[in-house]
């Protein structure tokens, strides 16, 4: 769906994106991660033809970035934007009428449908400038969904939403993805990406430092975390396989949590909880990226 080859963007002497090979496949829920200022937005803008690459290629839906490809893409880039003096409904109708591939006859119906979908079904004739941040965000999402795109490119789509709103948007994206829409989500929020995405790419200072299936970054560490009030007894029982002890529990090198649990309980050690430890996405990402780029060190 999206493939970039050796993509480079320079602004004067500053390199924003360097040698980027992005690979988003049909049906993916792709999470594009990176600290602020790492080049995510510049990349998203290049994918959509807003910013022109210095060198390298962008392939969008199997072709060049142009009218045909963009007509099948819905996007939300750096927050929604509307004509403030018009209502949300009027804004969506205008946007629909402005470009190709929209059928006038079905317009009112489609607008009503997407508003319903993003939870703005009951919205009145208030102008958009009177909307709250969350309502604008929902309206922006409605605009992206309006023509049932094959690919959704979303930059920080949950900005300004409350926890329920974030959950609703996530469920909506999962549902759309189920129906075949490819989702490209750019975010600096690890938790958001972890909760939604199947594949991730991590950008740091303009370079891709990690790209692959999410699971591959959450592999088992070979440790089992045991929470128990009887830490000392457990440690004595398990001996050298104890990798570390902490307040209220311990880490044990063991490849079968069920057998470990049986052994502990058999020996009379009380166990609150026990699970095989996975690497967190956070540690993988932090390990691959450097300092936050909006930090100005002395």
């Amino acid at each position: 769906m999206i493939r970039t080859t050796a993509l480079v963007k320079r602004y004067g002497r500053v390199t924003a994106v360097e040698d980027l090979h992005l690979d988003v496949r049909e049906g993916d829920r792709y999470g594009f991660l990176g600290p602020n200022g790492s080049g995510k937005t510049t990349t998203v803008r290049m994918l959509l033809g807003l910013v022109l690459p210095t060198s390298g290629q962008v392939e969008l839906l199997g072709g060049r970035v142009g009218r045909d490809a963009l007509a099948q893409v819905g996007a939300l880039v750096e927050g929604p934007a509307f004509y403030g003096h018009l209502s949300g409904r009027a804004n969506l109708r205008l946007s629909d009428a402005a470009g190709p591939g929209s059928v006038r006859r079905t317009r009112a119906h489609r607008v009503g449908e997407v508003l319903e979908q993003v939870g703005l079904g009951g919205v009145d004739r208030r102008p958009v400038r009177a909307y709250s941040l969350g309502m604008r965000q929902r309206l922006g999402l409605a605009g992206a969904l309006l023509r049932r795109p094959r690919l959704l490119v979303l930059d920080e789509p949950t900005n300004g939403l409350d926890p329920q709103g974030i959950r609703e948007v996530r469920d909506l994206l999962l549902q759309l993805n189920d129906q075949g829409t490819t989702v490209f989500l750019s975010s600096h929020l690890l938790s958001e990406v972890e909760a939604l995405c199947t594949r991730i790419g991590v950008l740091d200072r303009g370079r891709m430092v990690l790209q692959g299936d999410l699971e591959q970054f959450q592999e088992l560490t070979g440790l089992v975390e045991v929470r128990t009030p009887d830490v000392r007894r457990a440690a004595g029982l398990l001996g050298p396989s104890v990798a570390g002890v902490f307040e209220g529990g311990l880490h044990v090198t063991h490849d079968d949590p069920a057998a470990l649990n049986a052994a502990l309980v058999h020996a009379g050690v009380r166990v609150h909880a026990l699970h095989a430890q996975r690497r967190s996405l956070e540690s993988a990402v932090l390990g691959a990226t450097g300092d936050s780029s909006d930090k100005v060190a002395s």
Partner: peptide, 14 residues
């Protein structure tokens, strides 16, 4: 300034 330029171009309006 309003940010609508990017959405017009993405729509896409050439």
């Amino acid at each position: 300034q309003a940010g609508t330029l990017r959405y017009l171009l993405i729509r896409p309006v050439g």
